[in-house]
Simulated assay, not measured.
Amino acid sequence: MEFNAETLKKTENPGKKRDELRAKVISLKDLVDYQDGTVASRMIVNTKAGSLTLFSFDEDEGLSEHTAPFDAVVTILDGECEVWISGVTHQMKEGDTIIFPAGVPHALSAVTRFKMSLTMIREKES
Results as ranks from 00 to 15, higher is better:
residue 38 T to G: 11
residue 58 D to A: 12
residue 66 H to R: 09
residue 112 T to G: 10
residue 123 E to D: 14
residue 19 D to G: 10
residue 56 S to P: 06
residue 5 A to I: 12
residue 21 L to M: 14
residue 96 D to T: 00
residue 9 K to P: 07
residue 11 T to H: 15
residue 87 G to Q: 08
residue 25 V to G: 11
residue 72 A to P: 00
residue 68 A to V: 09
residue 13 N to K: 13
residue 108 L to D: 04
residue 113 R to T: 07
residue 69 P to K: 07
residue 70 F to V: 10
residue 15 G to E: 15
residue 26 I to G: 12
residue 6 E to F: 09
residue 2 E to P: 04
residue 89 T to V: 10
residue 69 P to D: 04
residue 72 A to K: 06
residue 63 L to I: 13
residue 19 D to C: 06
residue 121 I to R: 08
residue 57 F to V: 03
residue 39 V to L: 03
residue 94 E to V: 04
residue 67 T to Q: 05
residue 59 E to D: 09
residue 67 T to N: 02
residue 99 I to A: 06
residue 122 R to L: 10
residue 122 R to Y: 11
residue 62 G to Q: 05
residue 116 M to R: 08
residue 119 T to I: 14
residue 85 I to F: 01
residue 92 M to E: 03
residue 27 S to A: 11
residue 19 D to N: 08
residue 15 G to V: 15
residue 30 D to V: 05
residue 46 N to E: 15
residue 32 V to P: 04
residue 108 L to G: 08
residue 69 P to V: 05
residue 89 T to H: 03
residue 105 P to G: 09
residue 55 F to A: 03
residue 105 P to I: 05
residue 40 A to Q: 14
residue 90 H to R: 05
residue 18 R to A: 09
residue 115 K to L: 10
residue 78 D to S: 04
residue 50 G to K: 08
residue 65 E to R: 01
residue 33 D to V: 04
residue 86 S to W: 03
residue 46 N to K: 15
residue 31 L to K: 11
residue 75 T to V: 00
residue 108 L to A: 10
residue 42 R to K: 12
residue 126 S to Y: 06
residue 27 S to T: 13
residue 44 I to T: 12
residue 121 I to G: 10
residue 9 K to T: 15
residue 90 H to P: 01
residue 66 H to C: 08
residue 56 S to H: 06
residue 25 V to S: 14
residue 99 I to G: 03
residue 15 G to Q: 13
residue 14 P to G: 12
residue 112 T to V: 04
residue 22 R to G: 08
residue 32 V to D: 10
residue 59 E to C: 00
residue 36 D to A: 14
residue 119 T to R: 09
residue 50 G to P: 09
residue 80 E to G: 01
residue 69 P to R: 02
residue 120 M to G: 13
residue 99 I to L: 13
residue 108 L to M: 12
residue 39 V to A: 06
residue 58 D to L: 03
residue 71 D to H: 07
residue 79 G to K: 01
residue 56 S to M: 10
residue 78 D to C: 01
residue 54 L to C: 14
residue 106 H to S: 02
residue 49 A to N: 05
residue 16 K to A: 07
residue 46 N to H: 15
residue 74 V to W: 00
residue 110 A to D: 06
residue 57 F to W: 05
residue 103 G to H: 08
residue 35 Q to I: 03
residue 45 V to W: 09
residue 125 E to H: 11
residue 92 M to G: 01
residue 54 L to A: 14
residue 28 L to I: 13
residue 66 H to N: 09
residue 3 F to L: 14
residue 25 V to E: 12
